[in-house]
Design a protein around this nucleic acid. Structure first.
Lengths: 136, 136
DNA sequence: GCTATTATAGATATATAGTATCCCTAATGG
DNA sequence: CCATTAGGGATACTATATATCTATAATAGC
């Protein structure tokens, strides 16, 4: 079980936008170069973020991707869900009654992680980046 | 990102052993039938639990798998780690300095889940099973 | 010791998901 | 109208998970 690389690309792109360009359009070309990934691939990933309402895109010259107005509240969980989907990490396929005890525990465990990720906002992280001049 | 079916097989097998047969040898044949999976496949999974020191195996007639003496303390996390490995769920491969802020957050999130799973013991669950007569 | 039983290991096959690229189309600013 | 940029479809490659079959090793019971 692993988080996908796509999620990593999405998280880094979002952090870059929030920390360095919260209002400018940035082309996928430039974003892709920073992460050494092909523009078309990154584009597919970012399109998911667009559909999830976190960023918006503009075609044509000087186009690119830009944060939406409501970016202050975007959490890690929002981004992860947009890329990986919202399905539970654990499925007990057996049909042994309506509630599988193991399933219940696993879902609760996942909830613990998700609660943490829901409370971590990109904007919090961006503040840290600016203070410490950490490179993205 | 998903937990593997193998983890599900392992968890159910362990719960069955703890709840129903904490001291008897149970053949993989019988365990596999309960979960509608091939004996050789389940055997490979259970061998991992043997190597992790949670159960022991005996060849020959009346052989099979049995819990080790120390089974009272076995947690969900122990089993998951034995099957899925202990590697972090998230790797930031970029080389932008020693500490990637995103990586740090993701590892902490995983820790939240793992802490929960470490505190959930199979024996706790077995007690619930017996009280409520839930079918495994 | 012989035989039936049972776990273990190796080889192999199949399915699924992740990663990635190429190419074509659509939209838009200048 | 043209250069630029996002979006979508088709496709290929890889890695991992899932699963089975066969052969080998160990052991209990006779």
């Amino acid at each position: 079980m692993k988080f996908s690389k796509a999620t990593n690309y999405a998280l880094h792109t979002m952090l870059f936008l929030v920390a360095a360009a919260p209002d400018k359009h940035i082309g996928v070309q430039q974003l892709a170069e920073r992460q050494s990934v092909s523009p078309t691939y990154l584009s597919k990933i970012l399109t998911k973020l667009v559909k999830a309402g976190m960023i918006e895109s503009a075609s044509g010259a000087n186009g690119g991707y830009r944060l939406k107005r409501s970016w202050e509240d975007i959490s890690f969980l929002d981004i992860i869900h947009a890329i990986e989907g919202t399905a539970s990490l654990f499925d007990c396929d057996f049909n042994h009654g309506p509630d599988c005890l193991i399933q219940l525990v696993m879902v609760e465990a996942e909830d613990e992680m998700e609660t943490y990720l829901k409370n971590k906002k990109m904007s919090d992280l961006a503040r840290t980046v600016k203070l410490s001049k950490i490179s993205l």
